[in-house]
Amino acid sequence: MRHIISVLVENEFGVLSRVAGLFSGRGFNIESLCVAETLDPTISSMTIVTSGNDTIIEQILKQLNKLINVIKVTDFREMDYVSREMVLVKVNAEEKKREEVLRMVEIFRGKIIDVSPKTYTLLITGDEDKIKAFLELLKPIGIKELVRTGPVAIARGEKVIKIKEKQSKGGEDG
């Protein structure tokens, strides 16, 4: 089963490698991983898409939590969430095809962000289904290159993933 997991981590060097190493060392699967700073510059947020049965997912969540630099782990399966991914696609856009590509971009509310005599570079954002549909339609036209960010996700409604500051979150030792 596919899970989207949010991981809040200390914004320090080496943390990404700890998380990635955990997945490779224990044979867990990473479909995509997206990481950037949050509102609080000391914290980064990772969105990881992974898959596995319940036992494996339970281990993934526990093992992530065990890493010292990991502040909070959230499995979006346990809540309503929205997720979006961004894709850049370079497609064939020779004379006959230019119109068709334009129409498609319009229908999917994408953008053309770069143009050359023979190609268009398109930008599209959306959830998994929309992106899949868009790419299927582009295939016959000729995709020359494709890069995707992997999804990022956030809880629906007023719910916010935050860490409990002030309250003695860390262990103490005197």
Binding site: I68, N69, I163, K169, G170, G171, E172, G174
Partner: peptide, 11 residues
């Protein structure tokens, strides 16, 4: 330091 504070570590 007299105390340790690691916000992400709480056994």
């Amino acid at each position: 330091p007299e105390k340790v504070f690691i916000r992400s570590y709480q056994p």
